Every structure is written in C-alpha cells, then in structure tokens.
Simulated scan of single mutants.
Amino acid sequence: MNRTRSRAVVPDQACVAAVDLARFAIEENVRPDEVGEHLGVEGEGDRIVTHYFASLDRAYQGWRWAVTVARASRARNVTVSEVVLLPGSGALLPPQWVPWSERLRPGDLGVGDLLPTSDDDDRLAPGFTEVDDDVDHQMIFEYGLGRARVLSPIGRDRAVRRWHSGESGPHTPLAHAAPAQCSTCGFYWPLAGALRTGFGVCANEYAPDDGRVVAADHGCGAHSEAAVLPHQVEPTSPILDDLTYDTTEDPSEAGLAGSVDVNGSEPLGHS
C-alpha cells in the first residue's frame, strides 16, 4: 500500500527576513498607527511566506494583517503577493450567512416583492391532480384553463398544523376565554372540501379574526350566542280623548276683582 507523505514546508529565509517589506505594504493602504507588532510568519509553500501583524484599528479588534511575500526561483528580491485583513480568535464577526429561503418569515413580503417557488416544491402538485366532483378538471386542463399547480397533500397538512397551532387555533388566551367554539357560531363560514370539518372563515365584522381562517375549535367573545339581548317592548303612544274637554279655573286669577261694579246702575264714563 502506497502512502503519500506530505513534505514539511521549510520557510524561505529571505522571505522570513522581509518583515519591513511586509509592514510597508500594509502602511501603503492604511495609517501607520493602525499596524501593530509583528506576530509571526507561516510558510505557505516553496519560497512563499505569510507575515502576520496585529491590527490596532478599534473597528477591527482581534483582527490581524496578513501579508504574503514570495521569491522567484534563483531570484534575490522578495515581492509582495497580497495584503489582507483576517479575523483572529477573538475577532468580532457577523452572523453566519443564511440563504434567503431560510431567512424569509411570514409577513416579510411587501408591495411589489416577488417570491419565487422551486419546481420541486413539495407543497405544490400538478394542477390535473386536483379532484372535484363539481368540475371536470381534466377537460379544463386540456383546454389550458386550469392552474399549473395546486396544493399538494403535504402543503395542505402543513397549513392545517400551522393554522391550528397559530393565533386562530384553540390554544390561545382568546380561545380559552371564549364562551363557545367557532363551530357553533352563526358567523362561522366553513371552508369547502376536505378542510370543511376543521376550518372556516370568520364573518363577524366585530370579531378580531374577521375575514380570516379560524379553526372550528377556536373562539372569541363575539360569538353569535354569547349574550343574546332580550326583545325590548316599545312603549305605546298615549291615547288622547279629543271628543270632550273639561274646564278648569286658572289658580292665578282666583280672588281677583275689578274696581268697577259691572252689575251697578252707575253709568260708565266721566261725570
């Protein structure tokens, strides 16, 4: 059995001695006060050495400058290959990059944004696999009028679990405090198809879930039978007897008499 042995890299002494050349290469790009002490060298290959310097920049604490120098075969001069800033053991680093498909969360999609779906998305299935007794989907598909893809059983099961465990499910404080479940509410509109027995749409404009899909065992205080108001009897108008009337004496005129006797024989006027 043949084993490949890796030959230990012996640093080139001319490259190792090029400390000042490496420092000067850094100072050409940054201020001299941002370059710290020489931390050491590392052999990269034949006549290739990397010099490390501490970074004194406060924005890059824990980082270090790396300058790779090289020397051509049978040449005396050492040249600079590259200058980079590398993180050290205690360097402040950004979070690990996550693909957009894993970073996306519900509610992130804004106006004008487009969310692509892959061809092998397991939540979707070919449109002709949808079965409905009311419509001849095969005929619609042949005419090119049907949907290209529909919800697959996997996508449906994920939606069921997400809806049932979310804010519109039975495990929320709102549902626990409800007087009854949505399935017994008059404003509950069941979905069609296989999800009819488990989910519906709330049609109560005063409910917090109006226009949203809710679980049948969800609930809220806007239940149609939560508090039914009794029928109020409106008072009738008073009946007025306008056929007869009674005369009464005005109390303010009682006991008042005039200064002239209307029954006397004294003529009226001035004498």
Rank of each mutant, 00 (worst) to 15 (best):
N2R: 13
R5A: 12
S6D: 12
S6A: 15
R7S: 02
V9N: 10
P11N: 10
D12S: 03
D12W: 00
Q13E: 06
Q13V: 11
A17C: 07
L21W: 03
L21R: 08
R23C: 00
F24I: 13
F24Q: 11
A25Y: 01
E27D: 11
V30H: 05
E34T: 14
V35A: 00
E37M: 13
G40H: 06
E44Y: 01
D46F: 12
R47Q: 13
R47M: 10
H51K: 07
A54Q: 01
S55Q: 01
S55K: 02
D57A: 02
A59T: 13
A59M: 14
Y60H: 08
Y60Q: 04
Q61H: 10
Q61Y: 08
G62M: 06
G62D: 04
R64M: 15
V69G: 07
A70Y: 02
R71V: 01
R71F: 07
R76I: 05
V80K: 05
S81I: 05
E82V: 03
V83W: 06
L85C: 08
L86A: 07
P87N: 09
S89Y: 11
G90A: 11
G90L: 14
P94S: 04
W97P: 06
W100F: 07
E102K: 12
L104W: 04
P106M: 10
P106L: 04
G112W: 04
L114G: 05
L115S: 02
P116W: 04
T117L: 06
T117N: 08
D121E: 03
L124N: 10
G127L: 01
F128A: 14
T129F: 01
V131P: 02
D132N: 07
D132M: 01
D134M: 13
V135D: 05
V135I: 01
Q138A: 14
Q138N: 12
F141R: 14
Y143V: 14
G144I: 08
G144R: 08
R147Q: 08
R149P: 04
R149E: 09
R156A: 11
D157L: 09
A159C: 10
H164Y: 09
E167A: 10
G169I: 02
P170K: 10
P170R: 11
P173W: 06
L174P: 01
A177N: 06
G186D: 02
W189G: 03
P190M: 13
L191Q: 08
G193W: 04
A194Q: 12
V201S: 03
A203I: 13
A203M: 15
N204A: 10
E205Q: 15
Y206G: 14
P208M: 04
D209A: 06
G211M: 03
V213T: 00
A216T: 00
H218Q: 01
C220G: 00
G221C: 07
S224R: 08
E225H: 10
E225Y: 12
A226Q: 06
V228R: 10
L229R: 14
P230Q: 00
P230I: 00
T236S: 09
P238I: 04
T244L: 02
T244S: 00
Y245D: 12
D246G: 10
T247Y: 09
E249D: 15
S252M: 11
S252C: 14
A257S: 14
G258F: 09
S259F: 06
G264P: 08
H270S: 15
